[in-house]
Amino acid sequence: MTRSDGTAAVAGPDGAAGRPPVIEFRQVARTYPGPPPVEAFRPCDLTIRHGDFVTVVGPSGSGKSTFLNLAGLLDAPTAGAYLLDGIDTGSLKDADRTALRGRRIGFVFQSFHLMPHRSALENVALAMVYRATPRRERTRRAREALRRVGLGHRVDALPSRMSGGERQRVAIARALVGRPSLLLCDEPTGNLDTANAQTVLRLLEELHHEGMTIVLITHDQEVAARGRRTVAIRDGVLREEAMAG
């Protein structure tokens, strides 16, 4: 959908009554200083509600990374307002933004980012260290998260002893262990063969059916088709794509 002024306006399906959207962009934009200034992300409205599964597509240099940084609270917009779970993130101090990101957003990246000399259980549990979660509770929740992604039998395995698909499932468990509002995935199948990619995508679909809100950034149209909605970014302009069929 496009507003009368030419900027994008993208709305998600209705969420639970009375609950604010997980993501709400209000004319959010990002310009990097020059000279000359670079308008990396042009003003847009975007609403993603609880339980949605949105895929974000676009060619290299289109603005997908800028979108990821904005949605993940890794960068701040230079214009507009970003509300995460109804919280105006622009009004927060840096420490509060960091804390909000840790509580509400789980990240899954293409390159796994696992600690090589730590077991699967330790990699997942480490996500809770800075939340002052007691050790016993960290271990219990890490085991629970690994069971959820089908790796309850691999808790003691090192990343070097795991397949790429298993490593990505450990990364998903690490993202889930904090019970976030949003799972933000950046090319999660980019380093996987076809079979492992399908396993990871089926897991994400299962999580979506259980109510998890997922935003998945990809360059692969087949992966994008697995989402409930697809948003395209080109030259910093974000627009929703029509559903096929």
Rank of each mutant, 00 (worst) to 15 (best):
R143E: 15
L46G: 00
G12D: 02
R103S: 11
R26T: 01
Q168T: 11
F107V: 10
E122I: 13
L192P: 11
A8Y: 04
L114Q: 07
G227L: 00
A173Y: 10
G102Q: 15
D235T: 02
R138P: 02
H117C: 10
M212V: 10
P134F: 12
R131K: 11
D193G: 06
R26S: 06
L151E: 10
D14A: 15
G72F: 01
P134A: 08
R234S: 09
I217V: 15
V237H: 12
E205L: 07
L192N: 13
H219E: 05
Q27G: 01
A171T: 10
I217R: 04
F112L: 13
G164R: 08
I87K: 08
P20D: 04
A79E: 10
I87W: 07
S65F: 03
M162A: 14
A225K: 00
T199S: 15
L158T: 04
R228Q: 01
P21D: 01
V129F: 14
L46V: 03
R228H: 06
T213M: 05
A157S: 14
G18A: 09
G18M: 04
G236Q: 03
G51P: 07
V108N: 05
P180G: 14
R202H: 15
A79D: 14
A197S: 15
D193I: 15
R3D: 05
M1E: 15
R118A: 15
A197M: 12
M128P: 01
R138Q: 06
V56Q: 00
L73Q: 01
R42T: 13
